[in-house]
Every structure is written in C-alpha cells, then in structure tokens.
Design a protein around this nucleic acid. Structure first.
Lengths: 139, 139
DNA sequence: TGCGCGGCCTGGACGTGGTCCATTTCACGA
DNA sequence: TCGTGAAATGGACCACGTCCAGGCCGCGCA
C-alpha cells in the first residue's frame, strides 16, 4: 500500500501520522469514500485527527494527481485512489453504489474539432447511471 | 417561449405567477443557471418570490423531464432547459463557463455488457473539461 | 360571476458539506 | 539535539439545499 506514500515522499511531502492514516484509508481498489467517510475511518486509526486535516490532505493528493475527485450526485465529493488507470463510473441511482467501468474507445476522440469551440480540452468524465441488481430486485 | 408552460399546463400544472417567472428565466438556449441565479433573476420580475419556491419549481420541472439538472463542479447544481435534445457539456476549469456540445456516436453503446455488472442502465453524462479561449489567453 | 378547496407560496429555521484562520505541534535537515 | 517552517488543530463561519406551519390563490363548478 505504501506505493502512494512512497511516491508522495519522493516529491518532498512531509510524512506525518495524519497523512499516513489518510493514505491507508484510501488504500484498495474500488474505494469511493466521501471526505467524511475517510475522516470516520481515519479517526479509528488516529482518534485525534481533525476534519480540516482530512480535507486538506485529500485536496493535496488531488492536486498532485494521486487521487481523483468525483462528484456523482451533487452531494458530497468522493475520492478515488485509482488515479493511474483511466476509467469511468457506473452509479446506482437508488443506493449510490459506484463501480469502476472501462468503456470501449476514447471518449475524448468523439468530440469533433468544430464542437470544441477553441477550448484546450484536458479531460473527460463519463458517468453511467442506472439501477444496480439489488435495487432493481427491490423495486 | 410558452412552449414549456403550455406543456406543463396540459399535464395538470397549476399556473401561478411564480412558476411563470421561473419558466421565463429559463427560456433560451445555452442557459445553465444555478438555483440562486434563477432566483436572482426571478426576483427582478416578481420581487416577493421566495427561494424555497424557486427550488421547488425547479425540482418539479426536473421531475417532469422538462429541465435537466447538471452538477459540473461539485458546487451548486445548474439547470438546463435544453432537455429535449441530447447533448453533453464542455466546462471551462477556470471560469466555469458551460457550452452544450454534441459528440459523435452513442456513449451508452461504448459500455460492453460485461462492464455493466447487471445494472439496468438508464442514462449517461459526459463532461469535457478544459480551458476556454479567454482563460487560455490570460494564463 | 362568485365560491370553496386543495395545491401552492412564504420565510425562516435547520442540516450537511466544506472552508478559513490563529494558534500549537512536530518532521526533518543541519 | 535543535531550529524552523510546514502541518495539524478545532471551532467559527459560509454556501447550498431542505423542511415546515400557516396563509394564499388558481381553477373547476354552479
């Protein structure tokens, strides 16, 4: 799991207990926690960590490109540590579950030059919405 | 502009001054106001309209499929009256400007069955991000 | 046209997610 | 081990959105 911490340290990041804990919470695949969920889990490992620190740390990780920020529902932002493999998200409209998915083709290429209006395009996000099998069964 | 109001009335919507004003504010192409922007403009036409009413009315229009809700920045949701022509959004990362764009192909079709994990997929949103010509020139 | 009723509007309290800031703490190079 | 400046704290504050009790009023009906 220390890949993330290792990369950050070589970029001059000061290694504090708090940052270690946040990185540890974000460890793993298919993790899409909100900031408050990260905080709640961090508190179990380091009871005195403050909410502001979690927000700061997440913000820095995003700035360094090590974590992706996704806002799939207009409510709390979620943090996705899987920043080094291009992927998109599939969200259940009922329970909010998020899955990483890999569509075919390059969505960036689908936008013709005439439709770019002179913008320098740097990225694209695709969010599929639907009902997960569990919620579909309940409905 | 009364297309929207007309459609709503034939669905049993009660026509009040407040609803008329909200519909009027949303009239036009390439409009992507936040709820507070809608409220600010509505107040100019009907000074005593309340914020709660604007939120309620926008929510109802979204529920009826006449207006799209888009949250491109994790901050305030924006309301897009162009709900009857499929389109995606191009957002300037610096100033927040939004343009409607029309990519080639069907983004839904790009997701293989094996990547759908049993979800009943009902829609897809694509957001392109970049710098608009004005902000690129300033940078 | 006038009446009545049920849906609509109001305004203010409340909730959640997020930011800010003065002060204290502490990681790390010398 | 020490000094320094970056990082952490925690509590106030802000933005966006929701809720609710009470009053208002659009619209169908006579």
């Amino acid at each position: 799991m220390s890949d993330l911490l290792e990369r950050l340290r070589t970029r001059g990041w000061r290694l504090t207990a708090q940052r270690r804990v946040v990185a540890q919470v974000l460890d793993g695949d298919h993790v899409h926690f909100t900031a408050d969920e990260v905080h709640a889990r961090a508190v179990e490992l380091l009871p005195e960590i403050s909410r502001a620190t979690v927000y700061n740390t997440l913000g820095e990780m995003v700035g360094l490109g090590e974590v992706l920020e996704v806002s799939t529902d207009g409510r709390a932002k979620r943090y996705d540590p899987n920043a080094h493999h291009a992927h998109q998200h599939l969200v259940c409209q009922s329970c909010g579950t998020i899955r990483d998915v890999h569509p075919l083709g390059d969505p960036l290429g689908a936008l013709p030059t005439a439709e770019r209006f002179g913008f320098a395009i740097s990225g694209v996000e695709v969010t599929y919405r639907g009902l997960c099998p569990d919620c579909a069964a309940k409905a």
